[in-house]
Design a protein around this nucleic acid. Structure first.
Length: 555
DNA sequence: AAGAATTGCAACCGCACACTT
DNA sequence: CAAGTGTGCGGTTGCAATTCT
């Protein structure tokens, strides 16, 4: 697309301003100099390019003085940066770029300039436009904002955070290291970024500070994302990092040595941004430390309270939809089924994250994934009644084969601006139950929202790839949504190896001993994979969740 | 074929930070 | 140290192109 530029007109220095204005151009400025606005002409471009070639970038306000170009400095800079500078890559984003952007956005949120720093030849404006378009597109299609592999990566990293006892607010994953595998998978497309590999030993050290407490305490409910919430702390200074991003491995500051003190509040703020959680996280003393769904109890009425983030802006950091279809919360009429499902999964991406990247067309990129998912969703509507869940259908092998999804090979970033949704917040946001022992009763009871949305899962669950689905359908002949949910929840986070013990502890705390007993029973009574016990125990877990929710209703 | 609606992009705007004076 | 200036970032807007009805 693109407008037909009126570059042919070449009215750089219009002597007849009224004529130019009639062409949709406008002028502004002081009495001495009237600056032009609107589309640039080729002549203007030439002038600007010539000026930059001679004088270099910067000092944009001098352009007008030296060349007579009737453009303000900001406009010149923008034009240069977005259209005129060399090595700009024009045209549609490639599949790899799209996927990479998704990854970056999941980690950074709407930090377009920083994202652009990772995409040579692309501008922040371009990425921003692309992303906004993508949001609309996927929302229309009722699809998750992030591709499954991105979601899974975040989920697994979150799990890893959990298993490491928390994440210090100032000790962040290094983005570049975090994405190491992605770069490798993307096959040298982002070679420059590979320089970062090996700078740090892949496993960073974590502090023992509880991520829940630490992050939540520092959460600055900036009004940027929720007009309801006044800023609770002074605005953090913006960090100029775009150049740091470029420096890659050569920049020690960006490689794990960032001062912790600098980031604490900033971290919390950004993390909250990443999750669109401000409203949820800082509603005031009464709800302190309440995580997702805390609205359920914020006013003592678990079922009728309205969400506190009605004014959430469109920032979508991290595995979150910008718009949560708030109508689906509380007692408001639910939105159309498909969107509801989708929204649910924005917040609980783990369920969809296990879709095998190897067996689906998603390998071809986000657009393909979009088409594929849309098709699948569409077809699922016709089959949802005879198919069980799914999320467990991604086999351990699926995960193991996908290096991009292997959290244990990812690196931690020490981002000065840590907005990674892949921090422990992710898991808190996506799986409130996992918060377990560290959480308040509010959080546990808030599970009601989970179960309340469960019936919607059936559709989205069908997104699973046919292959993996077939493998496990025999186990999944459930119709109870809570079972489906629970199985998803369990299978995703807890079904494998070293995580099981942690999982069991956590869930025991939350869900009670009978859950564990059930778990043991299932594991001892069958040789099936962890998927099986996952289902069985999750049935129990789901029941307990229901009980909790029921309690909250009564309360 | 025509009008309406939607889409996608370029550019602008306001704000905040860094640097200079 | 405060004011002024330059720069960059993220959000928003305007509008041509495209698609839909």
């Amino acid at each position: 697309m693109g407008r037909v530029n009126n570059e042919i007109e070449d009215e750089v220095l219009p002597s007849d301003m009224s004529a130019a204005q009639s062409n949709g151009e406008s002028y502004e400025g002081s009495t001495s100099v009237v600056l032009k606005k609107g589309p640039w002409t080729s002549t203007e471009d030439d002038i600007l390019v010539d000026y930059v070639n001679k004088n270099g970038e910067g000092n944009w306000n001098a352009v007008q003085k030296h060349t007579g170009l009737l453009r303000c400095g900001k406009s010149c800079r923008l034009r240069w940066a977005n259209h005129l500078r060399p090595n700009l890559k024009k045209g549609a984003f490639t599949a790899e770029e799209e996927r990479f952007i998704a990854e970056l956005h999941a980690k950074m949120g709407n930090k377009w300039a920083r994202m652009a720093a990772h995409l040579p030849g692309r501008t922040d404006n371009e990425i921003k436009n692309y992303w906004n378009t993508r949001i609309k597109r996927r929302q229309r299609a009722g699809l998750p904002l992030y591709p499954p592999e991105v979601s899974l990566q975040g989920f697994q990293e979150s799990q890893r955070n959990q298993s490491n006892g928390g994440l210090n607010g100032g000790n962040r994953m290094h983005l570049d290291m975090l994405q190491k595998n992605s770069y490798e998978i993307h096959g040298g497309i982002f070679d420059s970024l590979k320089d970062n590999q090996g700078i740090l030993p892949y496993a960073p050290k974590f502090s023992d500070v509880s991520v829940c407490g630490n992050m939540l305490k520092g959460l600055d409910s900036s009004s940027q994302y929720c007009s309801i919430m006044p800023p609770a702390s002074p605005k953090n200074k913006r960090l100029r990092e775009s150049t740091i991003q470029f420096t890659g491995s050569k920049d020690k500051k960006n490689n794990g040595l960032y001062p912790l003190c600098q980031n604490r509040d900033n971290n919390s703020d950004k993390i909250a941004h990443s999750f669109g959680m401000q409203a949820l996280l800082d509603p005031g003393p009464s709800s302190h430390n309440s995580m997702c769904y805390s609205h359920s109890l914020s006013n003592g009425n678990s079922s009728t309270s309205k969400p506190t983030f009605e004014a959430v802006k469109l920032e979508l950091p991290s595995l979150q939809y910008p718009e949560l279809h708030l109508g689906s919360w509380g007692t408001s009429p639910p939105p159309p089924m498909l969107e509801s499902v989708d929204d649910f999964f924005q917040s609980h991406t783990p369920i969809s994250t296990l879709e095998s990247d190897c067996s689906s067309p998603q390998n071809s990129g986000l657009l393909d994934a979009l088409l594929y998912q849309a098709k699948t969703l569409s077809s699922s509507r016709n089959h949802c009644s005879d198919k069980g869940s799914n999320s467990s259908t991604a086999t351990p092998g699926d995960r193991g084969d996908n290096s991009a999804l292997n959290v244990y090979e990812t690196e931690w970033e020490d981002y000065a601006d840590p907005v990674s949704p892949f921090g422990a917040t992710s898991i808190l946001n996506e799986c409130p139950a996992l918060i377990g022992s560290e959480n308040s009763l509010d959080e546990q009871l808030s599970l009601q929202t989970f179960t309340g949305n469960i019936p919607k899962l059936e559709f989205v669950d069908q997104v699973w790839t046919p292959d993996s689905e077939n493998q496990t359908l025999s186990f999944l002949n459930f119709t109870r949504p809570d079972l489906l949910f629970a199985s998803d929840w369990h299978e995703l986070g807890f079904g494998h190896g070293k995580n099981q013990a942690i999982t069991t502890d956590t869930t025991t705390t939350l869900l009670g001993d009978d859950f564990v007993a059930d778990h043991k029973h299932m594991t001892s009574g069958t040789s099936q994979s962890s998927q099986v016990w996952g289902f069985g125990s999750c049935a129990s877990a789901a029941n307990n969740m229901h009980a909790l929710c029921h309690l909250s209703d009564l309360g």
